[in-house]
Nucleic acid binder design. Structure first.
Length: 277
DNA sequence: CGAGTTTGACCAGCGC
DNA sequence: GCGCTGGTCAAACTCG
């Protein structure tokens, strides 16, 4: 498949001398503010373009896979089977709206009254790659695998293992139509922020965590030095906090994080992200 | 040795 | 009630 319009060009980013540049005088600050405003306008324009691309792609997808699946790919629904022709005949279009790929498994959740947020992520893989791994920035623990009726490829079940009480589950299965495509179905919402690469590595390896602690301790000792460097340190901390706040506000949006994950991998694309109240 | 994966068994919901 | 199916559990196993 060709590169997807949703895949952001992450090399665009900020100019090297932008927000992180040293600013000592009010004139410099004013200049900095002007530059950041300009960047903001540019980014807004890029976002608009990206949204247009998304709409165009979604329209194409709807054309390709027909009206039933088109419902499944809209933003208002939770999910649907990627192969609607294989759905049980007893399922109406309305049922499809409330079902995960095979329908009745969703009923228990419906009865409980709280509908978890469900989204799907389609990821293209190497034909030679037989694994069921979708890299999306979170850390998952596999707890089961099953061969389902409508697809000869096994379905793998994952739980989010980054936070102990995170309720999010993920099902990964190769598409019955195109076995190069992995379909990841996410159920629920993470009760924690999206882990950074470092955090994932820390969770995977205790050694990495120890190294990170050592780095933190080194920085703490640096703070104690004080003197002429204190102002620089304060500015550095201010910048750090600003970046963290920006990152935090962006990563709170699951759609955004999914798109970023797709962009990073360069091979994924979100087909539907369903938001339910 | 601890964490993650595999895989057969078990359970619950659904249709007949 | 029975069989089918998807989802989950848990013991055994693997790996670093």
């Amino acid at each position: 498949m060709e590169s997807h319009p949703l895949c952001l060009d992450l090399t665009i980013g900020y100019p090297k001398q932008s927000i992180l540049q040293e600013t000592n005088s009010p004139v410099c600050l004013h200049e900095e503010l002007r530059r950041v405003t300009e960047e903001n306008v540019k980014l807004t324009s890029m976002l608009a373009t990206m949204c247009e691309s998304y709409d165009a792609l979604r329209a194409q997808l709807i054309d390709m896979i027909g009206p039933t699946a088109a419902v499944a790919s809209s933003d208002e629904v939770r999910s649907g089977s990627p192969a609607p022709a294989k759905r049980k005949s007893s399922e109406s279009a309305g049922d499809a709206v409330n079902s995960v790929s095979t329908g009745h498994s969703y009923k228990k959740v419906k009865e409980e009254g709280s509908k978890p947020k469900i989204s799907k992520l389609y990821s293209r893989t190497d034909p030679s790659d037989s694994g069921l791994v979708v890299r999306d920035g979170y850390q998952w623990r596999k707890y089961g695998q099953k061969v389902t009726k409508d697809n000869p490829c096994p379905r793998a079940y994952f739980r989010c293992s980054f936070a102990p009480l995170c309720p999010v589950k993920k099902k990964v299965q190769r598409s019955a139509d195109d076995q190069c495509v992995l379909v990841a179905t996410y159920e629920g919402e993470h009760n924690h922020h999206q882990p950074s690469l470092v955090e994932v590595q820390n969770a995977v390896s205790r050694k990495t965590a120890v190294a990170a602690d050592g780095f933190g301790a080194a920085r703490a000792s640096e703070k104690k030095d004080g003197g002429a460097e204190s102002k620089e340190i304060q500015q550095s901390e201010l910048r750090e906090r600003l970046v963290k706040d920006m990152a935090s506000s962006l990563t709170k949006d699951p759609s955004f994080t999914a798109v970023i994950a797709a962009a990073i991998s360069g091979r994924m694309f979100v087909v539907s992200t369903a938001q339910e109240n």
